[in-house]
Measured scan of single mutants.
Amino acid sequence: TRVETATETAWISLVTALHLVLGLSAVLGLLLLRKQFPAHYRRLRHALW
């Protein structure tokens, strides 16, 4: 049972790390898009919101 708990903890930390990386890359991508293609960014924002 101890090994299972350790594996679960590892999976949870892995998933958390993946979510963090995905969130950060999404934010960075949006910032880059905003900087380089303001028109595209505006259109995207209108489409999303």
Rank of each mutant, 00 (worst) to 15 (best):
T9P: 14
L48P: 04
T1F: 13
A6V: 08
T1Y: 15
S25L: 07
R42S: 11
L33I: 12
A17L: 10
T16K: 03
R43K: 13
W49F: 06
I12N: 08
R34Q: 05
L30R: 02
F37Y: 13
F37W: 07
H40N: 09
T16V: 13
R2A: 13
T9Y: 08
L32Q: 00
L18V: 06
L33F: 13
L22Q: 02
R2D: 13
V15Y: 10
H19R: 06
W49E: 04
L31V: 05
L30P: 08
E4F: 11
R45C: 08
A6Y: 07
R43L: 08
S13V: 15
L18C: 09
G29Q: 02
L28W: 01
P38S: 07
T7I: 10
K35N: 09
L48K: 07
L28D: 01
H46F: 01
A10I: 06
L31F: 06
Q36P: 05
R45L: 07
L31W: 06
L44D: 00
T7K: 07
I12F: 03
L20V: 12
R45Q: 10
L48W: 06
A39E: 13
L44Q: 05
L30W: 02
V27H: 05
L33Y: 10
L32E: 10
L20T: 10
H40Y: 07
L22Y: 05
R43G: 09
T1M: 14
R42D: 12
L30G: 13
T9A: 15
R42Y: 14
I12K: 10
W49L: 08
T7A: 15
H19P: 00
R2V: 14
V21L: 15
L31G: 05
V27N: 04
W11F: 12
R43A: 14
S25Q: 03
L20G: 09
L22R: 07
L48I: 15
Y41S: 12
H40K: 11
E4H: 15
A17F: 07
V21Y: 01
T7C: 09
V27Y: 04
V3I: 14
E4P: 02
E8S: 07
S25M: 06
S25E: 00
T7Y: 15
H40S: 09
H40E: 13
R45W: 07
R43E: 08
L20S: 09
L33T: 03
W11P: 00
S13G: 15
A26W: 11
Y41R: 01
V15S: 01
P38C: 00
P38Q: 00
A10Q: 10
A39H: 15
Y41N: 04
R34K: 14
A26M: 11
T9N: 06
H46I: 05
T7P: 15
R43Y: 11
K35F: 04
V15A: 02
L33S: 03
R42W: 09
L20C: 13
A39N: 15
Y41P: 08
L24G: 02
L44R: 05
W49T: 03
V3S: 05
Q36G: 07
K35A: 14
L18K: 01
L48H: 03
L14C: 05
A10C: 03
L22E: 00
T1S: 12
L30Y: 03
T7L: 12
L20D: 06
V3C: 05
T5Y: 01
A26K: 00
Q36H: 07
H46L: 03
T9L: 12
V15L: 12
E4A: 13
R42Q: 12
E8F: 03
L44I: 14
H19C: 15
V27K: 00
R2I: 14
Y41Q: 00
G29E: 09
R45Y: 04
S25V: 10
H40V: 07
G29V: 12
F37H: 01
L18Y: 02
R2P: 13
L22A: 15
V3A: 04
Q36R: 03
R2G: 10
P38V: 00
T1V: 14
L24Y: 03
T16I: 10
V3W: 05
H46D: 09
R43Q: 10
L24C: 07
L32K: 07
A10L: 06
K35I: 09
L44K: 02
Q36N: 00
A10F: 07
A47I: 12
L30I: 12
S13N: 09
L14N: 02
I12M: 03
H46S: 12
S13M: 14
R43S: 12
T5E: 06
I12Q: 07
S25D: 05
S13A: 15
L32M: 02
E4S: 12
H46C: 09
V21G: 10
G23M: 14
L14K: 04
S25Y: 00
T7S: 15
A47C: 12
R34I: 14
L33R: 05
V27I: 14
V3R: 04
Q36K: 01
L22D: 00
A6F: 03
H40W: 04
L24F: 13
G23H: 04
V27D: 01
L22F: 01
R42N: 13
A39Y: 12
W49I: 02
F37G: 03
T1D: 06
P38E: 07
L18I: 08
A17K: 03
H46Q: 06
L32V: 04
A10G: 11
L24T: 03
L24Q: 00
E8D: 11
L20Q: 02
